[in-house]
């Protein structure tokens, strides 16, 4: 139905030729923008309702004194449903470690939570299909679990800033929201998020549509195809400064994939965009000493690069 609407708008109202480049690009832009905003509104709302039942205080209790492996798996899964904003990373980290959540388990949560987020998943689902979205969830969880286990095994507790261990943490009651409050929360959350990301979506889809219509097919095969061994690490390095713009980056990446970027490279790039960010590193510097921070980035980046090579090899 959206497709018909976009076709009608572009080819009938604007009377552009379906075979023309401008017509094709505009049709693609309108259709994708409508689809993405519809998906974003509905799914963010549903996710917000689910999330209102998982305040971080509850997640903390569920993870407290959990052993490694079981704890890491649980933490990565809870990372999907617990609302997380990097601005709360410091109180969250302190709350976790102070209440006896092991360091490696805490990291599994910190990696999964921003990486497996609803905006990235909706964009992947809407533009690449549900299969790629599922692969992204699966590999994202795996990266979070494995990286957390490795950090746990390295026994780096002494590289947490000293004051963290001396902090007095109170116990606050878990506030239970009524259904009415949950709806209000979800509405506010959805509107707030849409307000924040809509320009990125429009610009991203616009650039994607431009690439779709104007860049020749196979343009990127040589540089970003599966035969270039440097494509994956370069994609990961480029993804770090693009933090939090998953909404704008995914449409561009989709267009790049059409022009020959390999699937593993696409996945690795996406994960680097969502999981590794400079602002988050700066915030985490408040609770982690440089050595642990660097280890965390190094391990996650390595895991993502491995995922990239793996999917380039098997798909």
């Amino acid at each position: 139905m959206l497709k018909q609407f976009a076709d009608y708008l572009v080819f009938t109202l604007f009377s552009l030729q379906p075979s023309s480049r401008s017509g094709e690009a505009l049709d693609f832009f309108i259709y994708d923008t409508l689809k993405i905003f519809l998906l974003l509104t509905v799914i963010i709302f549903v996710v917000a309702i689910i999330r209102s039942s998982f305040p971080p205080e509850r997640t903390k209790r569920l993870l407290s004194h959990k052993r490694e492996y079981v704890g890491n798996i649980l933490a990565a899964l809870l990372g999907i449903v617990t609302p997380f904003c990097s601005c709360s990373a410091v109180p969250l980290f302190i709350g976790f470690v102070e209440s006896g959540v092991p360091l490696g388990v805490t990291f599994s949560f910190l990696i999964s939570s921003p990486m497996v987020n609803e905006v990235a998943l909706i964009m992947l689902w809407g533009l690449f299909g549900w299969k790629l979205a599922l692969i992204y969830i699966g590999t994202g969880l795996l990266v979070a679990i494995v990286a957390g286990i490795v950090i746990g095994k390295l026994k780096m507790e002494r590289y947490v800033q000293d004051y963290v261990w001396e902090m007095q943490v109170g116990n606050c009651e878990i506030t239970v929201m009524t259904f009415r409050e949950k709806l209000d929360y979800a509405r506010e959350y959805t509107l707030g998020l849409l307000q924040k990301i809509w320009p990125y979506v429009v610009v991203g889809v616009g650039l994607g549509a431009f690439i779709h219509g104007y860049v020749p097919a196979d343009f990127l095969v040589k540089w970003a195809g599966r035969d270039n061994p440097f494509a994956v690490p370069v994609a990961v390095a480029l993804g770090v400064p693009l933090y939090s713009n998953a909404a704008g980056v995914i449409p561009i990446v989709q267009a790049l994939m059409e022009k020959g970027m390999a699937i593993g490279t696409v996945l690795a790039f996406m994960m680097a965009v969502t999981a590794l960010s400079l602002p988050e590193a700066i915030i985490l510097k408040n609770v982690l000493k440089t050595r642990l921070l660097a280890t965390f980035f190094g391990i996650v980046a390595t895991a993502i690069v491995i995922v990239g090579y793996l999917f380039n090899a098997i798909l």
């Binding site: 305040p55 109180p91 709350g95 116990n171 606050c172 009651e173 929360y185 959350y189």
Partner: peptide, 23 residues
Amino acid sequence: IMKYGVMSTPALVIDGKVIFSGK
């Protein structure tokens, strides 16, 4: 902030009692 046990900001505290957090 940690004394109140709050893990997601912003949070509202009235007379020492946490009313809500994370919104």
